[in-house]
Design a protein around this nucleic acid. Sequence first.
DNA 1: TCCGGAATGTGATCCCGCGCACATCTGTTG
DNA 2: CAACAGATGTGCGCGGGATCACATTCCGGA
Lengths: 227, 227
Amino acid sequence: MEDAEVVLRRAPLFEGLDEESARALRRQMPDVKLSRGEHLFMEGQEGDKLYIVLDGKLKLTRAAADGRENLLSVLGPGEMFGELSLFDPRPRTASVSAITDATLAGLAHDALRAWLRDHPDVSIHMLQALARRLRRANDVVADLVFTDVPGRVAKNLLDLADRFGEQERDGLHVHHDLTQEELAQLVGASRETVNKALADFAARGWIQLSAKSVLLLDTDRLRKRAS
Amino acid sequence: MEDAEVVLRRAPLFEGLDEESARALRRQMPDVKLSRGEHLFMEGQEGDKLYIVLDGKLKLTRAAADGRENLLSVLGPGEMFGELSLFDPRPRTASVSAITDATLAGLAHDALRAWLRDHPDVSIHMLQALARRLRRANDVVADLVFTDVPGRVAKNLLDLADRFGEQERDGLHVHHDLTQEELAQLVGASRETVNKALADFAARGWIQLSAKSVLLLDTDRLRKRAS
DNA sequence: TCCGGAATGTGATCCCGCGCACATCTGTTG
DNA sequence: CAACAGATGTGCGCGGGATCACATTCCGGA
Protein backbone atom coordinates (compact mmCIF):
# COMPACT_ATOMS: atom_id res chain seq x y z
CA MET A 1 0.00 0.00 0.00
CA GLU A 2 1.21 3.46 -0.92
CA ASP A 3 1.84 5.93 1.83
CA ALA A 4 -1.53 7.21 3.05
CA GLU A 5 -0.39 10.83 3.30
CA VAL A 6 0.84 10.80 -0.30
CA VAL A 7 -2.45 9.36 -1.54
CA LEU A 8 -4.46 11.92 0.39
CA ARG A 9 -2.66 14.75 -1.34
CA ARG A 10 -4.20 13.68 -4.63
CA ALA A 11 -7.72 14.29 -3.33
CA PRO A 12 -9.43 17.59 -4.21
CA LEU A 13 -10.02 18.26 -0.55
CA PHE A 14 -6.29 18.54 0.05
CA GLU A 15 -5.35 20.31 -3.16
CA GLY A 16 -3.38 23.48 -2.61
CA LEU A 17 -3.09 23.05 1.15
CA ASP A 18 0.20 23.73 2.91
CA GLU A 19 1.84 20.98 5.01
CA GLU A 20 0.53 22.45 8.21
CA SER A 21 -3.14 22.62 7.21
CA ALA A 22 -3.02 19.21 5.56
CA ARG A 23 -1.84 17.65 8.80
CA ALA A 24 -4.56 19.46 10.74
CA LEU A 25 -7.25 18.21 8.36
CA ARG A 26 -5.83 14.70 8.40
CA ARG A 27 -6.16 14.59 12.19
CA GLN A 28 -9.91 15.04 11.78
CA MET A 29 -10.16 12.05 9.43
CA PRO A 30 -9.99 8.75 11.27
CA ASP A 31 -9.18 5.62 9.25
CA VAL A 32 -11.88 3.13 8.36
CA LYS A 33 -11.02 -0.41 7.34
CA LEU A 34 -13.20 -2.66 5.21
CA SER A 35 -12.80 -6.26 4.12
CA ARG A 36 -13.64 -7.45 0.64
CA GLY A 37 -17.42 -7.58 0.21
CA GLU A 38 -18.21 -5.46 3.24
CA HIS A 39 -20.67 -2.56 2.95
CA LEU A 40 -19.72 0.95 4.05
CA PHE A 41 -23.21 2.39 3.71
CA MET A 42 -26.44 1.63 1.91
CA GLU A 43 -28.84 3.56 -0.29
CA GLY A 44 -31.47 5.33 1.82
CA GLN A 45 -29.37 5.81 4.95
CA GLU A 46 -28.58 9.20 6.39
CA GLY A 47 -25.17 10.34 5.21
CA ASP A 48 -23.06 12.39 7.54
CA LYS A 49 -19.56 11.63 6.28
CA LEU A 50 -17.36 12.11 3.26
CA TYR A 51 -14.59 9.62 2.46
CA ILE A 52 -11.29 9.45 0.63
CA VAL A 53 -9.93 6.07 -0.47
CA LEU A 54 -6.43 5.43 0.92
CA ASP A 55 -6.01 1.89 -0.34
CA GLY A 56 -8.03 -0.76 -2.17
CA LYS A 57 -11.04 -0.46 -4.43
CA LEU A 58 -14.72 0.17 -3.75
CA LYS A 59 -17.84 0.16 -5.86
CA LEU A 60 -20.66 2.65 -5.85
CA THR A 61 -23.96 0.97 -6.78
CA ARG A 62 -27.64 1.71 -7.20
CA ALA A 63 -30.36 -0.88 -6.97
CA ALA A 64 -33.64 -0.93 -8.88
CA ALA A 65 -36.83 -2.02 -7.13
CA ASP A 66 -36.67 -5.49 -8.68
CA GLY A 67 -33.16 -6.14 -7.39
CA ARG A 68 -31.15 -5.38 -10.50
CA GLU A 69 -28.06 -3.31 -9.86
CA ASN A 70 -26.19 -0.57 -11.63
CA LEU A 71 -22.54 0.17 -10.91
CA LEU A 72 -22.05 3.94 -10.98
CA SER A 73 -18.32 3.88 -10.51
CA VAL A 74 -15.28 2.07 -9.24
CA LEU A 75 -13.34 4.06 -6.66
CA GLY A 76 -9.58 3.75 -6.22
CA PRO A 77 -6.89 5.38 -4.07
CA GLY A 78 -7.11 9.17 -3.93
CA GLU A 79 -10.76 9.33 -4.85
CA MET A 80 -13.37 11.14 -2.83
CA PHE A 81 -17.01 10.13 -2.45
CA GLY A 82 -20.06 10.47 -0.23
CA GLU A 83 -20.07 14.24 -0.32
CA LEU A 84 -23.36 14.63 -2.14
CA SER A 85 -25.50 14.07 0.96
CA LEU A 86 -23.49 16.76 2.68
CA PHE A 87 -24.18 19.54 0.24
CA ASP A 88 -27.63 18.30 -0.70
CA PRO A 89 -29.00 17.10 2.63
CA ARG A 90 -30.87 13.97 1.63
CA PRO A 91 -30.38 10.26 2.25
CA ARG A 92 -27.66 8.50 0.28
CA THR A 93 -28.74 7.62 -3.23
CA ALA A 94 -26.16 4.89 -3.73
CA SER A 95 -24.54 2.10 -1.73
CA VAL A 96 -20.81 1.63 -1.32
CA SER A 97 -19.03 -1.67 -0.70
CA ALA A 98 -15.48 -2.94 -0.90
CA ILE A 99 -14.41 -5.01 -3.90
CA THR A 100 -11.00 -5.58 -2.30
CA ASP A 101 -9.87 -5.04 1.27
CA ALA A 102 -9.72 -1.29 1.66
CA THR A 103 -8.76 1.59 3.92
CA LEU A 104 -10.54 4.92 3.92
CA ALA A 105 -10.27 8.25 5.68
CA GLY A 106 -13.64 9.68 6.79
CA LEU A 107 -14.52 13.30 7.46
CA ALA A 108 -17.67 14.22 9.37
CA HIS A 109 -20.21 16.61 7.91
CA ASP A 110 -19.74 19.25 10.60
CA ALA A 111 -15.96 19.13 10.41
CA LEU A 112 -16.12 19.70 6.65
CA ARG A 113 -18.47 22.66 7.02
CA ALA A 114 -16.14 24.27 9.53
CA TRP A 115 -13.15 23.54 7.37
CA LEU A 116 -14.71 25.11 4.28
CA ARG A 117 -15.63 28.18 6.30
CA ASP A 118 -12.05 28.67 7.49
CA HIS A 119 -10.41 27.74 4.17
CA PRO A 120 -12.55 29.30 1.44
CA ASP A 121 -10.20 28.36 -1.39
CA VAL A 122 -10.79 24.67 -0.69
CA SER A 123 -14.37 24.96 -1.87
CA ILE A 124 -13.06 26.03 -5.27
CA HIS A 125 -11.28 22.69 -5.54
CA MET A 126 -14.43 20.90 -4.44
CA LEU A 127 -16.37 22.75 -7.13
CA GLN A 128 -13.78 21.64 -9.67
CA ALA A 129 -14.13 18.04 -8.54
CA LEU A 130 -17.92 18.10 -8.79
CA ALA A 131 -17.76 19.83 -12.17
CA ARG A 132 -15.49 17.09 -13.50
CA ARG A 133 -17.79 14.40 -12.18
CA LEU A 134 -20.80 16.08 -13.71
CA ARG A 135 -19.10 16.11 -17.11
CA ARG A 136 -18.28 12.46 -16.67
CA ALA A 137 -21.87 11.65 -15.80
CA ASN A 138 -23.02 13.42 -18.96
CA ASP A 139 -20.52 11.37 -20.96
CA VAL A 140 -22.00 8.19 -19.55
CA VAL A 141 -25.49 9.31 -20.54
CA ALA A 142 -24.32 10.06 -24.08
CA ASP A 143 -22.69 6.64 -24.32
CA LEU A 144 -25.83 4.86 -23.17
CA VAL A 145 -27.83 6.70 -25.80
CA PHE A 146 -25.42 6.53 -28.74
CA THR A 147 -23.04 3.60 -28.31
CA ASP A 148 -23.76 -0.14 -28.59
CA VAL A 149 -22.72 -2.65 -25.94
CA PRO A 150 -19.36 -3.72 -27.43
CA GLY A 151 -18.49 -0.04 -27.84
CA ARG A 152 -19.32 0.68 -24.22
CA VAL A 153 -17.31 -2.35 -23.10
CA ALA A 154 -14.29 -1.06 -25.04
CA LYS A 155 -14.71 2.41 -23.60
CA ASN A 156 -14.96 1.12 -20.04
CA LEU A 157 -11.88 -1.06 -20.45
CA LEU A 158 -9.88 1.95 -21.64
CA ASP A 159 -11.24 4.02 -18.81
CA LEU A 160 -10.30 1.42 -16.21
CA ALA A 161 -6.88 1.21 -17.86
CA ASP A 162 -6.38 4.95 -17.44
CA ARG A 163 -7.04 4.64 -13.76
CA PHE A 164 -5.67 1.24 -12.78
CA GLY A 165 -3.51 0.11 -15.70
CA GLU A 166 0.19 -0.73 -15.51
CA GLN A 167 2.37 -0.87 -18.59
CA GLU A 168 4.24 -4.19 -18.85
CA ARG A 169 6.44 -5.83 -21.51
CA ASP A 170 3.52 -7.72 -23.04
CA GLY A 171 0.85 -5.01 -22.83
CA LEU A 172 -1.19 -2.79 -20.54
CA HIS A 173 -2.29 -4.80 -17.54
CA VAL A 174 -5.55 -3.68 -15.89
CA HIS A 175 -6.35 -5.11 -12.46
CA HIS A 176 -9.94 -3.99 -12.28
CA ASP A 177 -10.90 -6.56 -9.62
CA LEU A 178 -14.39 -6.81 -11.07
CA THR A 179 -16.35 -9.93 -11.93
CA GLN A 180 -17.90 -9.90 -15.39
CA GLU A 181 -21.22 -9.48 -13.66
CA GLU A 182 -19.97 -6.25 -12.10
CA LEU A 183 -18.37 -5.11 -15.33
CA ALA A 184 -21.74 -5.65 -16.99
CA GLN A 185 -23.46 -3.50 -14.36
CA LEU A 186 -20.87 -0.80 -15.02
CA VAL A 187 -21.46 -0.96 -18.77
CA GLY A 188 -25.23 -1.08 -18.39
CA ALA A 189 -25.80 -4.39 -20.14
CA SER A 190 -26.35 -8.09 -19.36
CA ARG A 191 -23.55 -10.29 -18.13
CA GLU A 192 -23.89 -12.60 -21.15
CA THR A 193 -23.67 -9.85 -23.75
CA VAL A 194 -20.61 -8.34 -22.09
CA ASN A 195 -18.97 -11.75 -21.96
CA LYS A 196 -19.55 -12.20 -25.69
CA ALA A 197 -18.07 -8.79 -26.45
CA LEU A 198 -14.98 -9.64 -24.38
CA ALA A 199 -14.64 -13.03 -26.07
CA ASP A 200 -14.87 -11.30 -29.44
CA PHE A 201 -12.16 -8.76 -28.54
CA ALA A 202 -9.95 -11.60 -27.31
CA ALA A 203 -10.49 -13.58 -30.53
CA ARG A 204 -9.39 -10.53 -32.52
CA GLY A 205 -6.25 -10.33 -30.42
CA TRP A 206 -7.09 -6.94 -28.94
CA ILE A 207 -7.14 -8.15 -25.33
CA GLN A 208 -6.29 -11.19 -23.24
CA LEU A 209 -8.62 -12.24 -20.44
CA SER A 210 -7.76 -13.44 -16.97
CA ALA A 211 -9.49 -13.48 -13.63
CA LYS A 212 -10.43 -9.99 -12.43
CA SER A 213 -7.99 -8.38 -14.83
CA VAL A 214 -7.43 -7.84 -18.55
CA LEU A 215 -4.33 -7.37 -20.63
CA LEU A 216 -4.83 -4.73 -23.31
CA LEU A 217 -2.84 -5.57 -26.44
CA ASP A 218 -4.21 -3.13 -29.00
CA THR A 219 -5.56 0.02 -27.41
CA ASP A 220 -5.84 1.76 -30.78
CA ARG A 221 -8.35 -0.75 -32.12
CA LEU A 222 -10.23 -0.63 -28.84
CA ARG A 223 -10.36 3.14 -28.98
CA LYS A 224 -11.67 3.01 -32.53
CA ARG A 225 -14.32 0.46 -31.57
CA ALA A 226 -15.39 2.64 -28.65
CA SER A 227 -16.11 5.77 -30.67
CA MET B 1 -42.34 37.93 -18.25
CA GLU B 2 -41.83 37.80 -14.50
CA ASP B 3 -39.72 40.45 -12.88
CA ALA B 4 -36.08 39.71 -13.66
CA GLU B 5 -34.88 40.51 -10.14
CA VAL B 6 -37.39 38.11 -8.60
CA VAL B 7 -36.36 35.31 -10.96
CA LEU B 8 -32.68 35.88 -10.25
CA ARG B 9 -33.24 35.40 -6.54
CA ARG B 10 -34.18 31.78 -7.23
CA ALA B 11 -30.73 31.01 -8.66
CA PRO B 12 -28.14 29.37 -6.38
CA LEU B 13 -25.73 32.15 -7.11
CA PHE B 14 -28.00 34.66 -5.37
CA GLU B 15 -29.18 32.43 -2.54
CA GLY B 16 -28.70 33.95 0.86
CA LEU B 17 -27.42 37.29 -0.43
CA ASP B 18 -28.63 40.52 1.14
CA GLU B 19 -30.32 43.16 -1.04
CA GLU B 20 -27.16 45.19 -1.29
CA SER B 21 -24.89 42.39 -2.51
CA ALA B 22 -27.53 41.05 -4.87
CA ARG B 23 -27.76 44.42 -6.58
CA ALA B 24 -23.97 44.63 -6.84
CA LEU B 25 -23.76 41.19 -8.42
CA ARG B 26 -26.63 41.95 -10.76
CA ARG B 27 -24.76 44.99 -12.08
CA GLN B 28 -22.01 42.66 -13.28
CA MET B 29 -24.46 40.52 -15.24
CA PRO B 30 -25.50 42.19 -18.49
CA ASP B 31 -28.65 40.89 -20.20
CA VAL B 32 -28.42 38.70 -23.28
CA LYS B 33 -31.37 38.28 -25.62
CA LEU B 34 -31.96 35.29 -27.89
CA SER B 35 -34.66 34.58 -30.43
CA ARG B 36 -36.23 31.19 -30.84
CA GLY B 37 -33.77 28.82 -32.52
CA GLU B 38 -30.73 30.99 -31.94
CA HIS B 39 -27.55 29.44 -30.51
CA LEU B 40 -25.87 30.89 -27.43
CA PHE B 41 -22.75 28.74 -27.68
CA MET B 42 -21.63 25.50 -29.26
CA GLU B 43 -19.87 22.37 -28.08
CA GLY B 44 -16.10 22.77 -28.35
CA GLN B 45 -15.97 26.54 -27.90
CA GLU B 46 -14.08 28.20 -25.09
CA GLY B 47 -16.46 29.00 -22.25
CA ASP B 48 -15.87 32.11 -20.23
CA LYS B 49 -19.33 32.87 -18.93
CA LEU B 50 -22.01 31.49 -16.70
CA TYR B 51 -25.69 32.28 -17.33
CA ILE B 52 -28.96 32.47 -15.48
CA VAL B 53 -32.23 32.25 -17.41
CA LEU B 54 -34.46 35.28 -16.77
CA ASP B 55 -37.21 34.42 -19.22
CA GLY B 56 -37.99 31.80 -21.85
CA LYS B 57 -36.66 28.27 -22.33
CA LEU B 58 -33.39 26.92 -23.65
CA LYS B 59 -32.09 23.47 -24.45
CA LEU B 60 -28.73 21.99 -23.61
CA THR B 61 -27.67 19.45 -26.24
CA ARG B 62 -24.82 17.15 -27.16
CA ALA B 63 -24.15 15.89 -30.64
CA ALA B 64 -22.66 12.54 -31.65
CA ALA B 65 -20.14 12.34 -34.48
CA ASP B 66 -22.81 11.11 -36.92
CA GLY B 67 -25.10 14.05 -36.25
CA ARG B 68 -27.53 12.46 -33.81
CA GLU B 69 -28.37 14.65 -30.86
CA ASN B 70 -29.06 14.15 -27.20
CA LEU B 71 -30.96 16.69 -25.13
CA LEU B 72 -29.35 16.91 -21.70
CA SER B 73 -31.85 19.29 -20.21
CA VAL B 74 -34.43 21.97 -20.74
CA LEU B 75 -33.61 25.19 -18.91
CA GLY B 76 -36.28 27.56 -17.60
CA PRO B 77 -36.39 30.81 -15.61
CA GLY B 78 -34.16 30.83 -12.53
CA GLU B 79 -31.85 28.10 -13.79
CA MET B 80 -28.11 28.44 -14.00
CA PHE B 81 -25.85 26.84 -16.60
CA GLY B 82 -22.50 27.10 -18.31
CA GLU B 83 -20.52 27.03 -15.09
CA LEU B 84 -18.77 23.73 -15.73
CA SER B 85 -16.13 25.22 -18.03
CA LEU B 86 -15.39 27.75 -15.34
CA PHE B 87 -14.51 25.31 -12.61
CA ASP B 88 -13.11 22.69 -14.94
CA PRO B 89 -11.27 24.81 -17.50
CA ARG B 90 -12.02 22.96 -20.72
CA PRO B 91 -14.07 23.75 -23.82
CA ARG B 92 -17.84 23.50 -23.55
CA THR B 93 -19.12 19.95 -23.77
CA ALA B 94 -22.64 20.89 -24.78
CA SER B 95 -24.39 23.43 -26.98
CA VAL B 96 -27.13 25.76 -25.82
CA SER B 97 -29.90 27.20 -27.99
CA ALA B 98 -33.22 28.92 -27.40
CA ILE B 99 -36.43 26.92 -27.82
CA THR B 100 -38.46 30.08 -27.22
CA ASP B 101 -37.40 33.72 -27.29
CA ALA B 102 -35.34 34.15 -24.15
CA THR B 103 -33.50 36.58 -21.92
CA LEU B 104 -30.44 35.65 -19.90
CA ALA B 105 -28.07 37.29 -17.46
CA GLY B 106 -24.40 36.46 -18.08
CA LEU B 107 -21.55 36.56 -15.60
CA ALA B 108 -17.93 36.51 -16.78
CA HIS B 109 -15.48 33.94 -15.47
CA ASP B 110 -13.22 36.48 -13.80
CA ALA B 111 -16.09 38.30 -12.15
CA LEU B 112 -17.36 35.03 -10.68
CA ARG B 113 -13.93 34.10 -9.32
CA ALA B 114 -13.62 37.46 -7.63
CA TRP B 115 -17.14 37.21 -6.29
CA LEU B 116 -16.57 33.78 -4.80
CA ARG B 117 -13.37 35.01 -3.17
CA ASP B 118 -15.16 37.91 -1.48
CA HIS B 119 -18.32 35.96 -0.60
CA PRO B 120 -17.18 32.51 0.52
CA ASP B 121 -20.64 31.36 1.58
CA VAL B 122 -21.86 31.65 -2.01
CA SER B 123 -19.66 28.74 -3.05
CA ILE B 124 -21.54 26.54 -0.60
CA HIS B 125 -24.71 27.26 -2.53
CA MET B 126 -22.91 26.52 -5.78
CA LEU B 127 -21.75 23.21 -4.33
CA GLN B 128 -25.33 22.41 -3.38
CA ALA B 129 -26.47 23.19 -6.90
CA LEU B 130 -23.82 20.96 -8.48
CA ALA B 131 -24.55 18.17 -5.99
CA ARG B 132 -28.22 18.25 -6.92
CA ARG B 133 -27.40 18.14 -10.61
CA LEU B 134 -25.02 15.23 -10.09
CA ARG B 135 -27.76 13.28 -8.34
CA ARG B 136 -30.09 14.08 -11.20
CA ALA B 137 -27.55 12.89 -13.75
CA ASN B 138 -27.21 9.61 -11.87
CA ASP B 139 -30.99 9.25 -11.91
CA VAL B 140 -30.98 9.66 -15.67
CA VAL B 141 -28.31 6.96 -16.00
CA ALA B 142 -30.33 4.58 -13.84
CA ASP B 143 -33.44 5.24 -15.95
CA LEU B 144 -31.61 4.54 -19.18
CA VAL B 145 -30.38 1.24 -17.79
CA PHE B 146 -33.52 0.04 -16.02
CA THR B 147 -36.59 1.67 -17.56
CA ASP B 148 -38.18 1.04 -20.96
CA VAL B 149 -39.07 3.84 -23.36
CA PRO B 150 -42.72 4.35 -22.33
CA GLY B 151 -41.56 4.48 -18.71
CA ARG B 152 -38.97 7.10 -19.51
CA VAL B 153 -41.53 9.11 -21.47
CA ALA B 154 -43.88 9.07 -18.48
CA LYS B 155 -41.09 10.07 -16.14
CA ASN B 156 -40.00 12.95 -18.33
CA LEU B 157 -43.55 14.24 -18.67
CA LEU B 158 -43.92 14.28 -14.90
CA ASP B 159 -40.57 15.96 -14.56
CA LEU B 160 -41.48 18.67 -17.07
CA ALA B 161 -44.79 19.06 -15.23
CA ASP B 162 -42.96 19.70 -11.95
CA ARG B 163 -41.01 22.48 -13.55
CA PHE B 164 -43.35 24.02 -16.10
CA GLY B 165 -46.81 22.68 -15.26
CA GLU B 166 -49.84 24.80 -14.35
CA GLN B 167 -52.86 23.35 -12.62
CA GLU B 168 -56.08 24.11 -14.52
CA ARG B 169 -59.72 23.05 -14.21
CA ASP B 170 -59.31 20.16 -16.63
CA GLY B 171 -55.85 18.93 -15.59
CA LEU B 172 -52.19 19.81 -15.30
CA HIS B 173 -51.13 21.77 -18.34
CA VAL B 174 -47.45 21.44 -19.33
CA HIS B 175 -46.11 23.93 -21.86
CA HIS B 176 -42.84 22.20 -22.60
CA ASP B 177 -42.33 23.96 -25.95
CA LEU B 178 -40.61 20.86 -27.33
CA THR B 179 -41.24 19.09 -30.62
CA GLN B 180 -41.68 15.34 -30.31
CA GLU B 181 -38.27 15.03 -31.93
CA GLU B 182 -36.75 17.04 -29.08
CA LEU B 183 -38.75 15.15 -26.47
CA ALA B 184 -37.36 11.95 -27.98
CA GLN B 185 -33.80 13.28 -27.67
CA LEU B 186 -34.52 14.10 -24.04
CA VAL B 187 -35.87 10.61 -23.38
CA GLY B 188 -33.05 8.93 -25.27
CA ALA B 189 -35.20 7.14 -27.84
CA SER B 190 -36.40 7.50 -31.42
CA ARG B 191 -39.03 10.02 -32.41
CA GLU B 192 -41.35 7.26 -33.64
CA THR B 193 -41.23 5.19 -30.48
CA VAL B 194 -41.89 8.23 -28.30
CA ASN B 195 -44.81 9.21 -30.49
CA LYS B 196 -46.31 5.74 -30.07
CA ALA B 197 -45.90 5.89 -26.31
CA LEU B 198 -47.64 9.27 -26.21
CA ALA B 199 -50.44 8.01 -28.47
CA ASP B 200 -50.88 5.03 -26.15
CA PHE B 201 -51.07 7.22 -23.03
CA ALA B 202 -53.62 9.43 -24.79
CA ALA B 203 -55.73 6.41 -25.81
CA ARG B 204 -55.80 5.31 -22.17
CA GLY B 205 -56.98 8.77 -21.17
CA TRP B 206 -53.92 9.57 -19.10
CA ILE B 207 -52.92 12.59 -21.17
CA GLN B 208 -54.21 14.83 -23.94
CA LEU B 209 -51.83 15.97 -26.66
CA SER B 210 -51.53 19.36 -28.26
CA ALA B 211 -48.80 21.27 -30.05
CA LYS B 212 -45.75 21.80 -27.84
CA SER B 213 -47.73 21.06 -24.70
CA VAL B 214 -49.51 18.19 -22.95
CA LEU B 215 -52.41 18.06 -20.57
CA LEU B 216 -51.86 15.52 -17.80
CA LEU B 217 -55.14 13.93 -16.73
CA ASP B 218 -54.01 11.01 -14.56
CA THR B 219 -50.65 11.67 -12.97
CA ASP B 220 -51.04 8.65 -10.66
CA ARG B 221 -51.18 6.21 -13.54
CA LEU B 222 -48.28 7.98 -15.21
CA ARG B 223 -46.25 7.80 -12.04
CA LYS B 224 -46.97 4.09 -11.74
CA ARG B 225 -45.99 3.50 -15.37
CA ALA B 226 -42.75 5.42 -14.82
CA SER B 227 -41.48 3.33 -11.92
C1' DT C 1 -7.41 -32.64 -1.17
C1' DC C 2 -11.82 -32.72 -2.27
C1' DC C 3 -16.11 -30.54 -2.61
C1' DG C 4 -19.69 -27.06 -3.63
C1' DG C 5 -20.85 -22.69 -5.07
C1' DA C 6 -19.63 -18.98 -7.72
C1' DA C 7 -17.76 -17.18 -11.98
C1' DT C 8 -17.34 -17.97 -16.79
C1' DG C 9 -18.33 -19.43 -21.75
C1' DT C 10 -21.77 -20.14 -25.34
C1' DG C 11 -25.77 -21.52 -27.78
C1' DA C 12 -31.25 -20.82 -28.68
C1' DT C 13 -35.16 -17.98 -28.51
C1' DC C 14 -37.82 -13.91 -28.09
C1' DC C 15 -39.04 -9.16 -28.18
C1' DC C 16 -38.36 -4.10 -27.66
C1' DG C 17 -37.25 -0.42 -30.11
C1' DC C 18 -34.91 1.43 -34.38
C1' DG C 19 -35.19 2.67 -39.17
C1' DC C 20 -37.83 3.13 -43.16
C1' DA C 21 -41.84 4.34 -45.63
C1' DC C 22 -45.61 6.67 -45.98
C1' DA C 23 -49.88 9.50 -44.98
C1' DT C 24 -51.71 13.33 -42.70
C1' DC C 25 -51.68 17.58 -40.48
C1' DT C 26 -49.99 21.72 -38.90
C1' DG C 27 -48.41 26.69 -39.22
C1' DT C 28 -45.27 29.91 -41.58
C1' DT C 29 -44.05 32.85 -45.27
C1' DG C 30 -44.28 34.97 -49.62
C1' DC D 1 -54.59 32.28 -49.17
C1' DA D 2 -51.81 29.27 -51.48
C1' DA D 3 -48.09 26.39 -51.10
C1' DC D 4 -44.51 24.31 -48.98
C1' DA D 5 -41.74 22.72 -45.19
C1' DG D 6 -41.74 20.97 -40.99
C1' DA D 7 -44.19 18.31 -37.39
C1' DT D 8 -47.00 14.38 -36.35
C1' DG D 9 -49.31 9.69 -36.70
C1' DT D 10 -48.78 4.77 -37.85
C1' DG D 11 -47.65 0.26 -40.10
C1' DC D 12 -43.83 -3.16 -41.04
C1' DG D 13 -39.52 -5.75 -40.86
C1' DC D 14 -35.15 -6.39 -38.92
C1' DG D 15 -31.60 -6.74 -35.47
C1' DG D 16 -29.24 -5.93 -31.06
C1' DG D 17 -29.46 -7.41 -26.83
C1' DA D 18 -32.15 -9.53 -22.90
C1' DT D 19 -33.45 -13.89 -21.08
C1' DC D 20 -33.20 -18.70 -20.49
C1' DA D 21 -30.64 -22.84 -20.37
C1' DC D 22 -26.85 -25.28 -19.90
C1' DA D 23 -21.71 -26.86 -19.76
C1' DT D 24 -17.35 -25.81 -17.91
C1' DT D 25 -13.93 -23.82 -15.11
C1' DC D 26 -12.29 -21.66 -11.13
C1' DC D 27 -11.56 -21.02 -6.33
C1' DG D 28 -12.05 -20.89 -1.32
C1' DG D 29 -12.97 -23.42 2.71
C1' DA D 30 -13.79 -27.72 5.48
